[in-house]
Design a protein around this nucleic acid. Structure first.
Lengths: 365, 365
DNA sequence: CTGTTAGCGCCTTCAG
DNA sequence: CTGAAGGCGCTAACAG
């Protein structure tokens, strides 16, 4: 059923039919009535593809994140979709798995599909391919992470400051052996370890950690910075190793969701007392953090708002509001719960469980 | 940059340029070379919209779920997106919030956008509007829930059987006061309570519960079936009320994610011992179930596979494989952990905490 | 207010 | 192997 069909059935010209069906121009009440009736009877439905062809808009918005399955991105995507929906746009989803190549392919596809705008959480800090989208006339807003080079609107939180202040709580409480556990991305060599991890957020958070240590006059120590793969089980084994080593840390900061999960798996396996044996602070508040005992202290970020703001800025740009691209920094909140305490007077030795392989009962990832 | 532009630049006819750029038909190596070079130089990029116009395909797939923020749907969406991506299709996302009207609007939009297929987790069991999509030539696959009337491919798990067998563990262990906590959907009157909840999955699970009781010769009792809103805080207060009532239950079955979260909030507030005071089994394994103590026993379902299979069936149908629509039932697994035990000899009275309002520290939803 | 007429960018016969 | 011409469904002038 196309407009000509409806026009014929209603006995009017196709331009007239198009006008009432498309909701533009004007038509007499009588004609409008007749056209609408015919349309209903024939079961006509607008063809948005044909319309896009001419309007140059698809009312569609591409979203590239690492993985919707990760609660953080799921919330962000929801924020984007909600704001987009209110403006009549739909969100098309692509998962990059922190793989720059996949991200690039997704963006390319989005360009071909002529999405009106792009929200991306870039997997690398030098993602210059995004500039091509912009030069192809598609506005891009970065989510969660900053990219060097291209001047793009970017929505992030103050990662460095947030972590610095959280880690300072550790140092204030007398801790001197403080580690960071961080989920990075798959390595080039196919392993999921990533020595050359290049996610802005991670880098910033580690920097905040370093600054806090320096401010407290604590010398840095490479083995206290663990980049594990983007995988819960990997984080678990990294922490298992770390915590059973001589001169183990008494405080742990995890920079993300996945790292937090794996870290707690390990600590549970080791029968570590929190905060008696180790204090823990995680980045990003998850729904279960108040369900575990002790409740987990965290740095909480306004994830939905991040997504919503990104969509908002993007839509504004699509509609031609040409402000200079800038960075929008949202605030985090430290939520003090029960997983932090003073440094233990005597560091108790922790022993790996007899079965130290990823437990059969630990859900993978 | 369009094909004519490239053709002109390369000094060939536009049909020729179109052939090499579109990867169909044939062209001499020399011409191909020249066209490709021109395309690269001019920065040509295929216009998928124009192509769709003619091919009648958009290589796009609409996905309607209640809420991506819910881990269950996030995993399912990931499953859909992965399989779709492998077939060159992209997933467009829409959240219905269990609201039939929103779902309808989303589907309508998808039809206008001419998606090649639709995966939907229907909010109502009599969602006949889906038939219209099919008659508009767009194949539909139902995810997670069955709908009466329309003959549609449907991918679900054996909810009834799974719950029946789980609840039977309770009865076998001597429990006689067994409750179900279930998140339904927003009511018509704007409240988030839903006396007329109409989600197939919920109904099936409650039915399974009833069958287990009957098989054990336990009389049914209406106040042991709690339909709370799709909201963690609501589930919490429902359980708070339920567990402080006279003749409280000694076993709780939660039918979904959200209900499980709220239930545990309440039990924690009440200082209830699990499984000493109450045994608990939840539907759907979440990432945190092994992090809490005791570890939560659950009915686990292959969520990613559900999504993947839905996409798979859909794609097959798009490609014209016309098998009769049928229901595909996947299996669940009961994972026995530590939250279940024998019925207590004496039922200890549980007291509501002085502050029984949704705790400030409980993350909302 | 209404009808006629060109395209939007691409694919697809059909000749050459 | 290559080029010319028509049309997918809709919108946007432009007359009437």
């Amino acid at each position: 059923m196309t407009i000509p069909d409806v026009a014929r059935h209603a006995g009017v010209g196709q331009a007239t039919a198009a006008r009432v069906l498309g909701g533009y121009g004007s038509a007499s009440a009588a004609t409008r009535e007749r056209v609408l009736a015919s349309a209903a009877e024939l079961g006509y439905s607008t063809n948005a593809v044909a319309r896009s062809m001419i309007s140059g808009r698809t009312d569609t918005l591409g979203v590239v994140v690492a993985d919707v399955e990760n609660a953080y991105f799921a919330r962000a995507v929801r924020g984007v979709a909600d704001v987009a929906g209110k403006a009549g746009l739909q969100a098309v989803l692509a998962n990059s798995d922190e793989d720059s190549a996949k991200e690039k392919a997704a963006v390319q596809l989005f360009i071909e599909r002529r999405v009106d705008g792009l929200v991306v959480a870039p997997a690398a800090t030098d993602d210059e391919h995004l500039a091509r989208a912009v030069s192809a006339g598609i506005p891009v807003v970065l989510l969660d992470r900053v990219v060097t080079g291209a001047a793009l609107d970017t929505v992030v939180v103050d990662n460095r400051g947030a972590v610095k202040s959280a880690v300072t709580r550790f140092t204030d409480a007398g801790h001197t052996r403080i580690a960071v556990i961080t989920s990075a991305m798959p390595g080039d060599d196919g392993t999921r370890l990533a020595p050359g991890a290049d996610i802005w957020t991670t880098t910033e958070r580690v920097t905040g950690y370093r600054q806090a240590l320096r401010a407290a006059g604590i010398p840095r120590s490479a083995e206290l910075i663990r980049h594990t793969g983007y995988d819960r089980a990997w984080a678990r084994s990294a922490v298992l190793e770390l915590m059973t080593s001589a001169d183990r840390p008494t405080a742990l900061f995890t920079t993300d969701n996945v790292a937090t999960l794996g870290t707690l798996d390990a600590l549970l396996d080791l029968d570590a007392r929190i905060p008696g044996d180790v204090s823990v602070i995680g980045f990003d508040d998850a729904e279960w953090t108040t369900l575990i005992r002790p409740r987990l202290s965290v740095v909480s970020q306004p994830v939905q708002e991040l997504g919503g703001l990104a969509a908002d800025i993007l839509i504004r740009r699509i509609n031609g509001t040409a402000a200079r691209p800038r960075r929008h920094t949202l605030h985090t909140t430290y939520i003090d719960r029960e997983s932090t305490g003073p440094a233990p007077a005597r560091v108790r030795r922790l022993r790996a469980p007899s079965d130290s392989s990823p437990g059969a009962d630990a859900a993978s990832r």
